[in-house]
């Protein structure tokens, strides 16, 4: 079997990079069958849209992409990324399995020669970071200028009563410095990886869901494999995902410790406040995805 070309955005850091934890275990598993894996880290094969496109053409065999890139090819994929759908990795995996979510995504993604094999978890659950004040109730975010990643985030942040503003991730540190935005919606692991610990002052854990990175395989590449080789790859993906999950669970407290040590105060939500965020967010699910999809996935939500 030829060398397997793998590309991703992060660095080859087994301690902090969730995607590389998956890739490393994936490569280890394949090496048992004498298969060599060539890793292109740090966007050297191009940014999200480029790696996505090259995977679609079979130039990259395995790409770890973000949810946004996947949604460009599969509208249905947005459904799995709705806010407050699940609270942790285990319930996300259960929801994907029970809803047969991957099949629906692959139905759409196969038009572009892609096959989503699963997800690599970033570690930890989504919450709200800000520079301004401790947030422990939904009223605290009223009129807060939050950085939104995209229109979907604008929709649910508005539903919380905040004032979202779209800022690209590259500009977010500047936006936090200058007050263009005072906070954003992410897990601690992302803030640590982006080196933003010193820029932020407060973190409110919301258990709004894990952060899945998308494991995309090239259809061209996968379908050219022999049956035996395909089993190796499937096993390697399964092994990589398992190692990633164990790492994510183990690392979540570590990332929280890093942000606390870096001077970020953790301010938990008061009794009953998470329910208000859940309610406000769920009320706009059908503005983010088609109403029937929202109703469908709600059956598998926590």
């Amino acid at each position: 079997m030829d060398d397997v070309i793998v590309a991703f955005a992060g660095t080859e850091d087994l301690k902090n990079d969730a995607e590389y934890v998956f890739i490393h275990a994936f490569a280890e598993s394949l090496s048992e069958h004498g298969v060599n894996v060539v890793v292109h880290p740090s966007n050297t094969m191009g940014k999200e849209s480029d790696r996505f496109d090259q995977t679609s053409q079979g130039l990259i065999a395995v790409n770890i992409g973000n949810g946004g890139a996947l949604m460009k090819a599969s509208k249905w994929a947005s459904t799995l990324f709705l806010p407050f759908l699940t609270s942790d990795e285990a319930s996300f995996d259960r929801m994907v399995a029970e809803s047969k979510g991957l099949d629906r995504i692959n139905e759409e993604a196969s038009r572009l020669g892609l096959r989503v094999a699963g997800f690599a978890m970033r570690g930890g659950s989504l919450g709200l970071f800000n520079t301004e004040k401790p947030v422990s109730t939904i009223d605290d975010v009223a009129d807060m200028r939050l950085r939104a990643q995209n229109g979907d985030q604008v929709t649910f942040m508005s539903a919380w009563g905040a004032k979202p503003t779209v800022v690209s991730w590259a500009e977010t540190p500047n936006a936090l410095q200058t007050g263009v935005a005072v906070g954003h919606y992410n897990p601690p692991s992302t803030v640590v990886a982006a080196g933003q610990v010193e820029l932020l002052n407060y973190f409110t854990p919301m258990n709004a869901g894990p952060v899945p990175k998308v494991i995309m395989l090239s259809d061209d590449w996968y379908s050219m494999l022999s049956d035996e080789e395909r089993t190796w790859v499937d096993d390697a993906v399964a092994h990589g995902v398992a190692v990633n999950r164990a790492w994510a669970v183990e690392q979540a407290p570590y990332f929280e410790q890093v942000i606390v040590d870096g001077g970020i105060e953790i301010t938990p939500l008061e009794e009953g406040e998470r329910a208000k965020f859940v309610e406000a967010s769920r009320a706009v699910w059908d503005q983010i995805v088609p109403a029937e999809d929202a109703a469908f996935i709600a059956k598998f939500a926590d």
């Binding site: 496109d53 679609s56 053409q57 079979g58 946004g68 949604m71 460009k72 090819a73 509208k75 038009r111 572009l112 020669g113 995209n150 229109g151 779209v166 061209d220």
Partner: peptide, 27 residues
């Protein structure tokens, strides 16, 4: 032309199937 000299998988054809991130427009 795309992989295997297939026009249906060309750069332009692929962009028929992908949409912009923040508004509904094929790229």
């Amino acid at each position: 032309y795309g992989p295997g000299m297939n026009p249906a998988r060309s750069f332009l054809a692929r962009n028929l199937h992908t949409t912009a991130e923040t508004f509904d427009m094929p790229t």
